[in-house]
Design a protein around this nucleic acid. Structure first.
Length: 477
DNA sequence: TGAAATGTTGGGGCG
DNA sequence: ACGCCCCAACATTTC
């Protein structure tokens, strides 16, 4: 029987299908030893919501591996130490993994190769992006800072690729190393907070595949319009699955391409717009790779001098969905309940924090990091810097969302508000996005007492807009 | 992947 | 019939 085992190090690629590292390992005529290591000391440790997801995803992965006659070896501790120890204990001759793209990942991977390459074959694969950050450059040979040309190049390079199948079976090693029960990692939240997450999410590869199939069957074909309507399931809802690699980006693209090929009458325009959104994800990783400091600091130097306010009460009101602006509050409460917020509302709520409250985007990024199940270093930094106007190809600072107009435009019947801010449910459409303008009779009729069961606006948007423009003027010249 | 401020136009009321 | 004014409606500029 077989030679020495191949260690397959699982990270943000918690799937069996289209997993290049696992696939390559399964082709070797030797046992496969899947391993996951929880390093509680690493930077950018997943936030609470993300850890909830990870716990369930690992559980699912372990079951899938068991069904293939294999097992997931779970350990905790410093990653390099754990891998060395495992290599030693198991006598492994190979270490395979899919590359990660956070700055710390790059560093860790090179340390692993340095340390282990003499003793076993260390091989890494591209599993999580269409184009690795360093694979693309503009005509001057420099990293892109504008999305459109970046995406144009992506499209010229994009090929129809067939995703790899899941391995039929995985040969087990003669003995399994020590494995921690998942519960020991302390990933699941102690509060009941996350219980509602299950109403929307099924972490794991099967849940991801189901979401993709559902999306390609329906919402994809009205994506151009419906993706902006927060009260509709108009988006793919794949972000957390993609973050943990329960589905690969290549599988998603292939599914869209295949649907287009099989149903030529379908709207290519909608599909193209969706693919472009995936392009923003690629762009985020590209930027993170070349400008790693932008996780915490603005890409545009001038923004370092921006006169942000200090307002713990305002921040708290925003976090709890008590700003008095219904669309903002609805978004923040959806986030708390589902670990997710519709993208249109992320822009509105983000703009409100940064431009109406004049609070640093890093505060918003930190809250999102802890509460989003799809929290992702690259996407979070890109999204917040876009909102704040301080990033690459960002929304100009003076582009300030009006929360009332945005609400009226994208939630005209107020269904989203009524769902997430139930105390406003009885208000007529006309006032649902600006309850403070309703007459006292209307408010009474709807059972609302402003300042009691729903707050007055914590800032006046028109005044806040002027303050924001004044603040912006200070850093402009 | 905004919104407000400002500018322009053209139809209709009216002396 | 004509010029003048008003002001939607739309376009452009500015933040």
């Amino acid at each position: 029987m077989p030679g020495k085992p191949t260690l397959v190090w699982f990270r943000n690629d918690l799937r069996l299908a289209d997993n290049p590292a696992l696939h390559a390992a399964s082709l070797q005529d030797s046992p496969v030893l899947p391993v996951f290591i929880w390093d509680g000391g690493r930077p950018n440790l997943p936030g609470s919501a993300s850890r909830w997801w990870l716990y369930h995803s690992l559980k699912h992965l372990a079951e899938s591996l068991a069904a293939k006659g294999s097992s997931l070896v779970v350990q905790s501790g410093e990653t390099l130490e754990a891998l060395c120890r495992l290599a030693e204990q198991t006598g492994a001759s190979r270490l395979y993994f899919n590359r990660g793209y956070e700055p710390e990942d790059r560093l860790l991977e090179s340390r692993i190769k340095e340390r282990l390459a003499g003793r076993l074959e260390v091989k890494s694969f591209k599993g999580n992006l269409l184009f690795e950050p360093w694979a693309l450059a503009n005509k001057q040979g420099k990293p892109y800072q504008v999305f459109t040309p970046f995406w144009k190049q992506c499209l010229t390079l994009l090929r129809q690729e067939t995703p790899l199948p899941a391995p039929d079976g995985l040969a087990a090693p003669p003995a399994w190393p020590e494995c921690l029960p998942l519960e020991v990692l302390g990933l699941a939240p102690k509060l009941k907070w996350a219980e509602g997450f299950h109403t929307m999410w099924t972490p794991g590869e099967a849940g991801a595949a189901a979401k993709l199939a559902q999306f390609v069957q329906s919402a994809l074909w009205s994506y151009a319009h419906n993706r902006d309507i927060p009260n509709l399931p108009g988006t793919s809802e794949l972000s957390p699955h993609l973050h943990y690699g329960e589905i690969s980006i290549r599988q998603v693209v292939a599914a869209v391409q295949q649907a287009l090929a099989e149903q030529p009458h379908r709207s290519r325009e909608d599909a193209d717009i969706y693919l472009k959104e995936l392009g923003w994800r690629e762009f985020a990783y590209h930027l993170l790779h070349y400008f790693p400091h932008t996780v915490n600091a603005p890409l545009k130097e001038a923004y370092r001098a921006f006169p942000w306010r200090h307002d713990p009460e305002g921040l708290k009101a925003w976090q709890r969905g008590q700003t008095g602006y219904p669309i903002v509050d609805a978004g923040m409460r959806q986030l708390w309940r589902l670990g997710w917020m519709h993208n249109r509302v992320r822009m509105i709520a983000g703009s409100f924090l940064v431009k109406d409250l004049l609070l640093p985007w890093q505060d918003g990024a930190a809250w999102f990091w802890d509460t989003l199940v799809d929290a992702d270093v690259a996407n979070n930094a890109l999204g917040w810097q876009w909102v704040a106007g301080s990033g690459a190809d960002a929304s100009p600072f003076f582009r300030i969302f009006n929360p009332v107009l945005q609400g009226e435009k994208f939630d005209p019947q107020g269904g989203y508000i009524r769902r997430w801010v139930p105390e406003l449910a009885e208000l007529p459409d006309k006032w649902i996005h600006q309850p403070w303008k309703a007459s006292s009779a209307v408010l009474q009729q709807a059972g609302i007492i402003l300042g009691r069961n729903y707050p007055f606006p914590i800032v006046d948007h028109d005044e806040a807009r002027q303050s924001a423009l004044n603040a912006y003027a200070k850093i402009r010249s």
